[in-house]
Design a binder for these strands. Structure first.
Lengths: 306, 306
DNA sequence: CGCGCATCATGCAAAGCGTTCATTGATGCA
DNA sequence: TGCATCAATGAACGCTTTGCATGATGCGCG
């Protein structure tokens, strides 16, 4: 007796189409490429049909694959709704979710995620704690926030961290900058440049903390609040910057400025959602985190979920 | 990391409610009672909620259980539709399904099943081969039928048998018949009675083949085409009958006649669908069998699926 | 009251699914 | 042509689900 169709298979098909490849789909699902390959083979054997053409970029579904995808698109949201409802039955529909952010750029993805979340949990009070804060976890302890977006886990803190995603921080140069010829930039390359950053403490700037300070490099500095303003300064050769790739992707596509990896392996940042342990199990908290991860995965280029 | 919700769980909930008990649900799903018990426990642990009240007959769902049931009712038909569509993609939407029956009463459940099937497979020509036939399998070999409903598997025949269900054949007596006092009837009890049957060869009557002939009992005989006519004769004390319990259940409920088991263990019949091996894998054939099993399981009292 | 029956839970042994790791083959790019 | 990417496959191992045997509990009936 062959194994029946399961939601697992629908999740696989959906991920396959979203990511456009078996390996990427596997990563999205927190599975291995091998597992997915086996799983797909088993599905195809069961149906006696192939589900997609392997040798084509982008990936192309057969009619049977398309029908399965249609089923996924129909069923998976219904399952999501049901799970949320069950969460509400357990924890109640109401609550508060005051969010503290330490990074400027986070608003780019936070707003869409909140827009997605709000109609699902109309009775949860959703707010952003105004301003930027060097220490969201502190705000949580003072009960002035319920969830903080942070870039480092401090295991000593009594909070629960939900991993969000990992992204590359790239150096941004004017298109005709002399360093634009390089394939990658090193710490020393910044020595004679003006580094343009957000006006926040150096500890919150990964490029300083992880690259320049260890190398003893102290470039000239300049700051601006807005991403677009920073880019404008870079384009007009007033300096260089180091920003998340996803934050500047649209500008890169239009060749407004040039991006280069920082260091041999590239420089990467990570983001986590910090919540009080007592609230980590709440249905709407978990769903908020899932919503953030889902919206970011589909809208931010070049990130990888943690 | 806890295991995610799967269709398996939804099928379990649906079966649980349909059958009204864990053990019966397990049988319906071709699993053990143990497996379902474990599965339900794991589900409840995962949600942190109980899904149904164990100590209550009939089984009562908690709100969370009801929500899961609603999801099942929503999702499982969609999955069924998709699987049928994929079957159509593989085997085509058209075909023919000429059905040969050897037993009179089968029409009671065959018609509803056909009504269910027809809209799902509008391009499959669905017919009943007219009249009753002692040998449906023969008709299949002569290519005059595509599927036969038979009560015995002849392993020597080159056909594929799909098991349908098992049912009890009960003796039917007038309410004030002297034998109505017994808890069960034996072969000898028929010796001085008139046995009323359908007008078919004795080999097709289980009560003759399995009970009376082995005991050398030859009661007086009378026959009628229609179930209701047989019952009318029984009620008016013209004789006794032996019919499938599910065929007479509505009359028993109204106490029109009295039913008693035949023999110590009761007398049981089984039904199979016979098809040519080459057609056993066709999507619409499998779906027809599934449809029959499903409609019979839900509409015929006292049967057990094989 | 105790017996039997029906029903569900539970502890321990076998399949199924996923993982790791290695390997191969196919494809596209320089 | 060589190199990188991607997917398929196979085998050994571990965790999860299922099965089997048994035990607990509740209910009806004498």
């Amino acid at each position: 007796m062959s194994t029946a169709l399961e939601l697992r298979h629908l999740r696989t098909i959906a991920a396959l189409v979203e990511t456009g490849g078996v390996a990427r789909a596997a990563e999205r699902l927190n599975l291995t490429q091998s597992a997915l390959s086996h799983q797909l083979k088993q599905l195809e054997d069961q149906f006696g049909l192939s589900l997609f053409e392997r040798k084509s970029q982008p990936l192309k579904l057969t009619p049977a694959g398309q029908r399965l995808l249609a089923l996924s698109d129909q069923v998976l949201p219904q399952v999501g709704d049901a799970l949320r409802d069950i969460g509400r039955i357990r924890d109640g529909a109401a609550g508060s979710l005051r969010i503290a952010v330490e990074c400027h750029t986070c608003f780019d993805w936070l707003m869409p995620a909140m827009d997605e979340f709000r109609p699902r949990w109309p009775e949860v009070e959703l707010d952003i704690v105004s301003g930027f804060h060097a220490d969201p976890v502190g705000l949580i302890h003072q009960n002035e926030a319920d969830l903080g977006i942070v870039s480092e886990r401090d295991e000593a803190e009594p909070v629960h961290y939900f991993p969000l995603f990992r992204y590359e921080i790239v150096a941004l140069l004017a298109n005709d900058h002399q360093l634009a010829g390089r394939t990658a930039l090193q710490a020393e390359d910044f020595a004679d440049e003006t580094l343009i950053t957000y006006p926040v403490p150096d500890d919150m700037l990964d490029v300083i903390r992880q690259v320049l300070r260890p190398a003893g490099v102290q470039p000239r500095r300049r700051s601006s609040e807005l991403t677009v303003a920073i880019l404008q300064l870079v384009a007009s050769r007033r300096g260089v910057a180091a920003l998340p790739e996803w934050a500047v992707a649209p500008y890169l596509e239009r060749r407004y400025v040039t991006a280069r990896p920082i260091g041999e392996q590239g420089l990467f940042g990570e983001l986590y959602a910090a919540v009080p342990p007592s609230r980590a199990g709440l249905a709407y908290v978990e769903d908020f985190v899932d919503t953030v991860r889902a919206t970011c995965a589909s809208s931010l280029p070049g990130i990888s979920l943690l």
